[in-house]
Design a protein around this nucleic acid. Structure first.
Lengths: 193, 193
DNA sequence: CCGAGAAACTTGACATCTAAACTATTTATA
DNA sequence: TATAAATAGTTTAGATGTCAAGTTTCTCGG
């Protein structure tokens, strides 16, 4: 239904060039003489974006939903008691305002609810409804099939290697974070009062 | 100057937990029993998003610009004669309408120009201005430092391994693409008639 | 040469995302 | 216990992104 094509400029990353030889894309930014780290980053980005785009498209086609909504529900399914907004924001690595918006949507669709948080009247606990849980389980099953298919180009041991190296990378990034952000932490509100 | 902090809910993925033991984020979606491919995907996504967020933040802080604008300029710098809009759209893996918007911005800022395309009056050639080139070079230098810093947690040979495995992955994805999209390829305009 | 269809780009409607300001509540502290 | 500061969440403005429809120009078969 969503696939009727009129112009050519759309469909960029998907149907346009199924298996061409001339690969000119994000990675093109990397010159021959560029450093290793930059090449790695661009390749990492390129792969991730491609996979994400495919998942996004399929979620829309088959379940009429979006990736952020799916991700939020996935987090909730993992946490029996539900999660507070700020915890969702942290785990999904998106802004608080964004979580508000996505939660609004899901609540309107009857897939999650905001419940009062005992002991803190500022906060909510967001939970999946029964419908939401059922719906998520359907999607999650398909989703995993897609991932297995898309990453199927790698052998088991290659996947294992990647997992390990990425773990190391993640640890490093978390460390490197604080160093760059230290400067001005103390310029708080209240000055205006 | 953009760094005055008021609320806490921002800065989610960065300053909140510099080096804690409890890592609960996107990857939390993966249960212990989950399959390898899914774990790999979530870890890949998690790392990419973290790095992207940091780069985005720094581009804003130091150069008051954004990632898409930087990416577009990067493509132009690589192509001496400039690039047409549709080529930019393809390489950046975003829609044509999006490229129009980003180009408008950069043109307003005097960093790129649309030049007539000899031989095809439908098309433009987008080029960096002198200012744009100068500005990009400054940003690119910093950008590469950041990448080297952020990926610096990996040894040379680990980086090399990743580059190779990701290359294989990318090739696979490009192939897997067409298979899933085959169904309705020929529902083109004119089909209605 | 003409007309149909394809191609290049723009536009408009709308979803998503960030950053920053704002409200309400809780915590810390003097 | 006042009160300043921190926290939880929402809201707003603006950039980014998609999709689909619209305009102009090309291309090509008859």
């Amino acid at each position: 239904m969503a696939g009727t094509s009129t112009s050519t400029m759309r469909n960029n990353a998907s149907a346009s060039h199924p298996s061409n030889g001339a690969v000119l894309d994000l990675e093109t930014r990397a010159k021959k003489g560029d450093h290793q780290a930059l090449r790695l980053w661009l390749r990492l980005l390129s792969c991730t974006v491609r996979i994400e785009n495919k998942i996004r498209l399929r979620l829309r086609r088959e379940f009429n939903t979006t990736l952020p909504r799916f991700d939020l529900m996935a987090q909730l399914e993992r946490s029996a008691g539900g999660l507070r907004m700020n915890e969702l924001s942290r785990r999904l690595m998106v802004s608080g305002g964004n979580v508000t918006g996505i939660t609004d949507q899901l609540e309107r669709e009857g897939l999650v609810v905001r419940a009062d948080c005992p002991g803190d009247r500022r906060a909510f606990t967001v939970k999946l409804t029964d419908t939401g849980l059922k719906r998520f389980r359907e999607m999650a099953a398909r989703h995993e099939q897609w991932i297995i298919e898309l990453l199927g180009g790698l052998a088991r041991d290659e996947q294992e290697t990647m997992i390990n190296v990425l773990w190391k990378l993640k640890a490093h990034i978390n460390g490197a974070a604080s160093a760059a952000l230290k400067p001005n932490r103390r310029s708080q509100a209240g000055g205006t009062r």
